[in-house]
């Protein structure tokens, strides 16, 4: 096993170890039971615990909310467990818990139960949080990658790679000022706007591995072809420059407040509607599904198609 390995290797681990033993076909982020109750669980080990734009507490709520709402559910309740390293500063804990509460209020969810364990120094890196989430799926909503067809458009709700750049700056102490901020945000409202104004087929949050990795997973699962248009990708100017400096590609960088939506017909004013909301004001159509290719391709600004591979390992900053 390789710590620090990426989304693809983790996915392989899930397939080979957990899915087989638990006799389920895959280990999804969230699952809907009884056709209306959606449940999810997630663990948060982010390092550093505090980063510009958020902290592990805020992340634990947005991550859980986002896992719940991707199938169209309305997030309702969260349970949270804390594993604390002995000696963890109590004022830091206060600050994390308070950001959990304010994020939960923003997302309209209630934190209803939890558990706390303190372990010896060295047995955990400060603080880990595990959550469970409960949401309710309104009748008539059935989002499924199997519904995606050639011609369907692919939307992201804003700029790519901002969370990863914020974390790399903090972790590597690159000393950037102002420090780039994580995009960490709850996405239930974006999903609501999409559901009300489009024929939304499927949505996924573009976390670890970034947009390129998630699109590859979807293609793997569905046999779809996807062409992404390089010139349409929303990337902050500073993120683009920092990516050039660090040898990184924003398409492979983690986001914590971005989703990829596959839509059929949409109201004409969909993009302008999305642009009025704070977590989707830089939304863009980045590509579409097609029968012309198998797998994920990027149409470069020079008009050539090149494959957008699944990369197994998380990208590292480089100088060459």
């Amino acid at each position: 096993m390789s710590h620090g390995s990426g989304a693809a290797l983790t996915r392989q681990l899930i397939k080979e170890v957990f899915a087989g033993e638990f006799r389920i076909s895959t280990l999804d982020d969230a699952v809907c039971i009884d056709g209306s109750l959606t449940v999810t669980t997630d663990a948060y080990v982010v390092n550093p615990i505090f980063f510009p734009g958020g902290d592990i507490g805020k992340l634990s709520i947005t991550g859980t909310v986002n896992d719940l709402c991707m199938n169209g559910s309305r997030p309702a309740y969260i349970l949270a467990s804390f594993i604390l390293e002995e000696g963890f500063a109590i004022d830091q804990l206060h600050s994390i818990v308070s950001s959990m509460q304010s994020t939960a209020e923003e997302a309209g969810v209630q934190i209803i139960a939890g558990d706390t364990k303190v372990v010896e120094k060295g047995r955990c890196d400060g603080l880990y949080i595990t959550t469970a989430g409960i949401g309710f799926l309104p009748g008539g909503i059935h989002l499924d990658a199997g519904k995606i067809r050639s011609g369907d458009k692919i939307i992201v709700n804003g700029t790519l790679g901002d969370h990863a750049i914020a974390i790399i700056n903090a972790r590597q102490q690159l000393g950037l000022t102002p420090a780039p901020e994580s995009d960490c945000a709850p996405l239930h409202e974006v999903i609501r706007i999409l559901l009300q104004n489009t024929n939304l087929k499927f949505a996924r949050d573009a976390t670890r591995g970034g947009v390129a990795t998630i699109l590859n997973e979807i293609c793997d699962d569905t046999g779809l072809g996807i062409i992404i248009d390089e010139s349409s990708l929303p990337v902050k100017y500073s993120t683009r420059v920092l990516c050039d400096m660090l040898g990184l590609d924003p398409l492979y960088l983690a986001n914590e407040g971005k989703l990829i939506a596959f839509i059929g017909e949409a109201n004409d004013d969909l993009l302008s509607l999305l642009k009025t909301y704070k977590y989707s004001y830089e939304a863009a159509v980045i590509g579409q599904c097609t029968n012309e290719v198998k797998g994920v391709f990027l149409r470069t600004i020079l008009g050539r198609l090149r494959p957008l591979l699944m990369l197994a390992s998380d990208p590292l900053p480089r100088i060459c």
Partner: peptide, 28 residues
């Protein structure tokens, strides 16, 4: 530099060695 982290040695690369407790840090 991050470039060298995943270059395989005979048994391990630096990233794997770090995961096993060696103090190996990426600098820019």
């Amino acid at each position: 530099f991050g470039d060298l982290m995943r270059v395989p040695g005979s048994h391990q690369n630096l990233e794997q060695a770090r995961a096993q407790g060696c103090d190996i840090r990426i600098v820019f």
